[in-house]
């Protein structure tokens, strides 16, 4: 069946949008690592700089001597 040029353009556009959507989903949140493990984050300084929270328990104690 002969596909109209319009159908071809629509199909190409749809394909491009699909590829774009998949690509964005990968880029949207680099911190979402479905199936990832501890090591993949804890060996990545860039990740840790983004997500690590300051420790509020720090304190210099008067230690026993």
């Amino acid at each position: 069946m002969h596909r109209s040029r319009t159908d071809q353009l629509l199909g190409s556009l749809f394909l491009a949008l699909a590829v774009f959507a998949v690509g964005c989903s990968e880029l949207a949140d680099p911190l979402e690592r479905p199936g990832g493990n501890c090591v993949s984050c804890h060996t990545d300084q860039a990740i840790l700089e983004t997500v690590a929270e300051p420790d509020t328990t720090s304190e210099e104690p008067e230690g026993e001597g």
């Binding site: 090591v39 804890h42 060996t43 300084q45 700089e49 690590a52 929270e53 300051p54």
Partner: peptide, 17 residues
Amino acid sequence: PPLEAWEKVLISGDEGD
């Protein structure tokens, strides 16, 4: 010296290896 939050939990370099 104090450590940044990320430094406390980073495993990298020769020590990490």
